[in-house]
Design a binder for these strands. Structure first.
Lengths: 203, 203
DNA sequence: GCCGTAAACTTAACAGTGTTAATTAAGTGA
DNA sequence: TCACTTAATTAACACTGTTAAGTTTACGGC
């Protein structure tokens, strides 16, 4: 009676194949420039088949982003579990976040720069185990560690985390949207932003 | 022979009418949810008429944003021309920028959060007299004033301006995209971000 | 092996999009 | 009044996301 299981496996396989095709096209051409028909062509199925596996194009993008941000959580876990000076660790985490965004601009844009969908459910999205919130909790941890070590004064940790997030997001999204702007060097402005933010908290 | 002039006036009038209709619809429903046909319906002309006055939908949005950001420049001019403590003035300018973005989210999104168009010409957009660059030059001035007054140490002014812009843009764009996020109070996080950034420069 | 059923998948269509070529209407100068 | 320029429209093209209806496929029970 392993038939059901095999069928489920096959379904899962095709689902992943759709996801992979969508990911590749989204990354190369951007969400708006990829049609359901193009994704379907790529996997050699009819367009409507995709709707058996995903509610609509938005959910497809959603799942692509979920996969990507799962990798960010892994990356941050590695960094934040390292021993060492907590201020430096916090900075390394912020820089990892920024670099991750720049390496995955399409998914970053979809997650943090696109209008939230009409049927958006905050209760669902802002759950503690969602990749976004997990990433955010690393920030909270990093700041708490710094306070405990006396590197920055006691403060509202949530507020501090939101300020750092805003700063990191700012430079990430600007570099994505405006790569042509006459930046004083990408690395330079990234590190300066992070340094300024952390120095500002420490002050 | 005032005929040409009258014709030009009439053309200019209709152009502005299209612009106003587009502005209203873009603001209410967002760029993606407004079609050329809907704009045409609103002004009671056929859709193709719009193409006589604007190259395409993107240019229409472009002009809407240009109008809006002209108002930002006016706002910043008033603030930066005030006398007083330069650090406070710089902060007031940053907060004005953020609040302006939150008051005009659709135009802000179009200008700083949407993928740059295929035919984007940096030479044209990053000209010194474009509203975006004018706004940026206020930052440069504000920082220079602070350095002159000895409020912050001498530094690469362009780099500092880009860091402040990144920070201000970060909180603006996040509040636009994620209004449902459990923010520690909008005002609070806005002021904390600005204070942290400026304190970080001063450190 | 055959049949009914349920799942997987496709075809065809709907209602909409931005945009353009071809055409008509309007107003001016001679 | 006639020619000509300009303005505006009609009709169409090539797409888009999505869905209802129909077809194919593969399995479980007989």
């Amino acid at each position: 009676m392993g038939v059901k299981e095999r069928r489920a496996r096959q379904k899962e396989y095709l689902r992943q194949e759709i996801l992979d095709a969508a990911t590749e096209l989204f990354i190369r051409d951007g969400y708006e420039n990829v049609s359901m028909r193009r994704i379907a062509d790529k996997i050699e199925y009819s367009p409507t088949t995709i709707y058996i596996y995903f509610k609509d194009k938005a959910e497809l993008l959603d799942q692509v982003c979920k996969e990507t941000f799962g990798r960010l959580v892994q990356k941050l876990t590695k960094i934040m579990d390292q021993a060492g000076e907590p201020l430096e660790r916090l900075k390394r985490g912020l820089i990892a976040y920024i670099e991750f965004g720049l390496e995955n601009p399409q998914q970053y844009r979809a997650t943090f720069m696109m209008p939230i969908p009409e049927d958006f459910d905050p209760q669902k999205f802002y759950k503690k185990d969602s990749p976004g919130m997990q990433a955010f909790s690393f920030l909270i941890r990093g700041i708490t560690d710094c306070i405990k070590a006396g590197k920055i004064p006691a403060m509202n940790v949530d507020l501090a985390a939101q300020v750092l997030w805003a700063g990191a997001h700012g430079i990430t999204s600007l570099l994505i949207t405006d790569p042509m702007f006459p930046w004083v060097g990408r690395e330079k402005v990234i590190h300066s932003t992070v340094d300024t933010l952390v120095a500002g908290l420490a002050a």
